[in-house]
């Protein structure tokens, strides 16, 4: 009993200090524009809308969040829009790999360095999927079949010169095989085309295929990561190294950037706000259901990670011949 009351007291104290500090610090004074540089329904859009939903549900922001999709030019529209909002404290953007791939492939003039890094929220996995009615139980069997069919097997993916094609090329180069890469508009569409047997395999994110997996329509063969996904049934999927012997790993950034030269106090507020979002049960459930890798970080560590990843994309795309000529 005594213990409980002490902890309650402590909590109240803590809450008090939190309130006091937040009252003095910066807070949004008008609606926050939350840009999604991708279309409605994709992974980034889902996450932005989840954040919006959680913020509303738990009343985490004093001002409403407005999710705006600006998907033109493989996301260039969204990035350039935010780039143009210099010093704005009420504009943030959620990024996916097109933060790196779009400028490298199309030559559109923007870079993550134009924006203010806020936080990394999570990393998204990639899985090699085949249709469940095919006889391939392991990645090894599938790759053997691809070799045998001599470059006529079709790999479906989202967009062109983006993460799915990069992964396909990495797999091709590591295993000495050849796919026909078929680009689609969105990840959900890719997986449905796999279920409909219009393509032979995909490298979809877990979220895009999970419902079809549970319905026994698709089969995961390997995870493109250095270790297995540690949650739920995902544990049973081997890594690509276990399955094929070659170490191909790739994770996609799900992070937040702010407008260029966003005031320091505003960045701090967003970091705190997003931290609170990631601590809600709704967020945790979403992460688990969709096999996302929790990877909350901010500040210098985030910047360092982004820097390394930009270089990684440059190398990968150079190897795959995807850089703008």
């Amino acid at each position: 009993m005594r213990q409980i009351s002490t902890s309650v007291l402590l909590l109240m104290l803590l809450a008090g200090t939190l309130l006091a500090t937040s009252a003095a610090a910066w807070e949004p004074t008008k609606p926050i524009e939350f840009v999604v540089p991708a279309g409605t329904g994709g992974g980034a859009d889902q996450m932005a809308r989840l954040i919006h939903g959680i913020a509303e549900k738990h009343k985490l922001s004093p001002r409403p969040i407005i999710v705006v999709n600006k998907s033109g030019g493989a996301g260039a529209e969204g990035f350039l829009h935010v780039k143009g909002k210099k010093g704005d404290a009420h504009t943030i953007i959620i990024t996916l790999s097109n933060l790196f791939t779009t400028p490298l492939h199309t030559g559109v003039p923007f870079s993550w360095k134009d924006l203010t890094p806020v936080t990394r929220l999570a990393l998204d996995q990639f899985i090699l999927w085949v249709n469940a009615e095919t006889p391939y139980k392991t990645a090894k069997e599938y790759i053997a079949a691809v070799k045998e069919k001599n470059g006529t097997m079709k790999m479906g993916g989202t967009g062109s010169a983006q993460e799915d094609q990069i992964l396909t090329i990495m797999l091709e180069q590591a295993q000495g095989v050849k796919f026909i890469y078929v680009p689609f508009k969105g990840g959900g569409e890719v997986c449905v085309n796999l279920v409909g047997k219009h393509v032979d395999s995909t490298v979809n994110n877990p979220a895009e295929c999970v419902s079809h997996w549970k319905a026994n329509r698709v089969r995961p063969l390997a995870v493109f990561d250095t270790e297995r996904i540690p949650v739920g049934e995902w544990k049973g999927i081997p890594t690509i190294k276990e399955a094929l012997g070659s170490d191909i790993h790739y994770l996609m950034l799900r992070g937040i950037f702010g407008a260029p030269d966003m005031p320091k106090e505003a960045v701090d507020w967003y970091v705190g706000f997003l931290k609170k979002v990631t601590e809600t049960p709704d967020w945790k459930k979403y992460m688990e259901d969709n096999a996302l890798k929790p990877a909350f970080t901010s500040g210098a560590e985030y910047v360092k990670w982004v820097e390394e990843n930009e270089q990684l994309h440059r190398d990968l795309m150079a190897k795959g011949g995807l850089l703008k000529q």
């Binding site: 859009d45 989840l50 549970k214």
Partner: peptide
């Protein structure tokens, strides 16, 4: 199938996920 037939359906899909439902064949 869990694929949206329109942008509106895409946002609804997001809703299903937040309500804790998994859209799709099951």
């Amino acid at each position: 199938l869990g694929i949206p037939g329109s942008p509106t359906a895409a946002v609804m899909l997001g809703g299903l996920i937040i309500w804790g439902l998994q859209p799709g064949p099951l």
